[in-house]
Structure formats: structure tokens, C-alpha cells
């Protein structure tokens, strides 16, 4: 499928139906972010609470068992930092 920017009005399906299930995954919600979560692994206990609370399921488990944000989707809401058991996630402004 063409990317949104490449779609002309003629490409749209009748009635603007979406015939490709799950294509919301192509949408880069990471664009909305002004703060980015950064995990300080030395204090992380790998409990996965951040993973459960992320409202966008934007957190993935790494091979070592740590959890990290997928910045394609992470909106920077800060919920993971708020909920982290050990307080090892800090929100860092994007421009830094």
C-alpha cells in the first residue's frame, strides 16, 4: 500500500473504508513526542510494569529481559516513568 503522503483522492476506497485490517500500525505516533523515556538499566528490576501500563503498547522486551520504548510509536506520555517500580525511567526532552 502507498504511504499516506503518496495517496491521491482517486486512490481512496469508496466511502473511505479501510480494507486492510491493522494498518493503524503504519501510523507514526512517535511524531507527537516532546519527551522521551530513558531507562537506567542499573536500577531496572525487569518487572515489566512499564510494559503493562504503556497505553500504546509501545514498549518491547529486549533479549536481555529489559524493557524499552519503541520510538516509532512512543508518544512520550510519561506513564511508564510514573508507574516504574524503582523510578528508573526518566523523561528527557527530545531536543537534548
Amino acid at each position: 500500500m502507498k504511504s499516506e503522503e503518496a495517496l491521491s483522492w482517486k486512490d481512496l476506497e469508496v466511502g473511505c473504508v479501510v480494507s486492510q485490517p491493522g494498518n493503524a500500525s503504519q501510523y507514526r505516533t512517535g511524531d507527537w513526542r516532546s519527551m522521551r523515556p530513558v531507562v537506567h538499566r542499573d536500577h531496572c528490576i525487569r518487572c515489566g510494569v512499564c510494559y503493562i501500563f504503556c497505553p500504546d503498547m509501545a514498549i518491547r522486551k529486549t533479549d536481555e529481559g529489559y524493557f524499552e520504548a519503541d520510538l516509532y510509536y512512543c508518544k512520550g506520555c510519561g506513564i511508564c516513568a510514573q508507574e516504574c517500580i524503582t523510578g528508573c525511567i526518566s523523561m528527557v526532552p527530545e531536543e537534548e
Binding site: E4, C16, S19, P21
Partner: peptide, 17 residues
């Protein structure tokens, strides 16, 4: 043939719609 009817139209596609 599952489809979504009444999907969100973001600024990038609303004008085309």
C-alpha cells in the same frame, strides 16, 4: 473481507477524502 467503516481521517488524508 473485514473492513473498517467510519475510520479516523487524519489531516494527511482528510482533504483527499
Amino acid at each position: 473481507r473485514p473492513t473498517t467503516v467510519g475510520a479516523f481521517g487524519l489531516p494527511g488524508i482528510f482533504t483527499e477524502a
